[in-house]
Amino acid sequence: MTSDPEESVRLQGYGEMTLRTAIATLMAVPARDRADAAVFRVRDESRLAPREIAELASDWGIAQAADIKLPDRHWPDIVRGMVREAPLPALMVAFLMGVLVARR
């Protein structure tokens, strides 16, 4: 069944929106939270199956949150970059960030 991306749906916990926005929102949350969410069509209150949501996301080119790779940046590199050409207040922030990171 083909679905209109502009169809009005209700995403549990988020409210009413278009189908494309609901699927993009679902794909942005972690997989463990995605399993509990539900998408209901406004016109007939039918619930979309997780398989149908995954197919629509694939058809529309919406990537899952787990598929998105973030650049591998480490805190020492971030702090070092802040310190290089930073004024004193920025150096104090960098020091405090280092202390917070070291405690975790």
Results as ranks from 00 to 15, higher is better:
residue 98 G to C: 09
residue 99 V to A: 12
residue 23 I to V: 14
residue 53 I to G: 01
residue 48 L to F: 12
residue 40 F to R: 01
residue 89 P to N: 04
residue 87 P to Q: 09
residue 84 R to D: 15
residue 64 Q to K: 11
residue 84 R to L: 14
residue 71 P to T: 09
residue 96 L to Q: 15
residue 92 M to N: 14
residue 95 F to R: 13
residue 79 V to N: 05
residue 82 M to F: 10
residue 29 V to K: 02
residue 91 L to V: 11
residue 66 A to R: 12
residue 24 A to Y: 01
residue 59 D to K: 10
residue 91 L to H: 15
residue 91 L to I: 12
residue 17 M to W: 08
residue 22 A to M: 03
residue 43 R to E: 15
residue 63 A to N: 15
residue 8 S to R: 06
residue 10 R to A: 09
residue 54 A to W: 03
residue 62 I to K: 04
residue 12 Q to Y: 09
residue 76 P to F: 02
residue 87 P to N: 07
residue 21 T to H: 05
residue 26 L to A: 02
residue 19 L to Q: 03
residue 68 I to P: 06
residue 36 D to K: 14
residue 89 P to D: 07
residue 10 R to Y: 04
residue 98 G to V: 08
residue 97 M to A: 14
residue 38 A to E: 15
residue 11 L to N: 10
residue 28 A to I: 01
residue 60 W to I: 06
residue 13 G to I: 02
residue 65 A to L: 05
residue 94 A to K: 05
residue 93 V to Y: 13
residue 36 D to A: 14
residue 19 L to P: 04
residue 90 A to S: 13
residue 11 L to T: 02
residue 76 P to A: 03
residue 62 I to S: 07
residue 17 M to L: 11
residue 57 A to Y: 03
residue 77 D to P: 12
residue 39 V to R: 01
residue 58 S to V: 00
residue 29 V to L: 07
residue 86 A to D: 15
residue 62 I to G: 06
residue 74 H to M: 08
residue 69 K to E: 08
residue 60 W to F: 01
residue 87 P to M: 03
residue 87 P to I: 08
residue 22 A to V: 00
residue 48 L to C: 06
residue 40 F to Y: 13
residue 26 L to T: 06
residue 11 L to R: 06
residue 28 A to D: 11
residue 14 Y to N: 09
residue 78 I to T: 10
residue 38 A to R: 15
residue 65 A to G: 07
residue 40 F to K: 01
residue 76 P to Y: 04
residue 32 R to F: 09
residue 56 L to K: 05
residue 29 V to C: 01
residue 70 L to T: 12
residue 42 V to A: 08
residue 28 A to Q: 08
residue 30 P to I: 08
residue 29 V to N: 02
residue 95 F to K: 08
residue 73 R to F: 01
residue 100 L to P: 05
residue 28 A to S: 14
residue 62 I to V: 08
residue 25 T to N: 01
residue 80 R to C: 04
residue 100 L to K: 14
residue 18 T to S: 14
residue 94 A to R: 03
residue 83 V to M: 12
residue 28 A to T: 06
residue 21 T to Y: 02
residue 38 A to S: 12
residue 71 P to V: 10
residue 15 G to K: 01
residue 31 A to Y: 05
residue 69 K to Q: 12
residue 81 G to F: 04
residue 41 R to D: 09
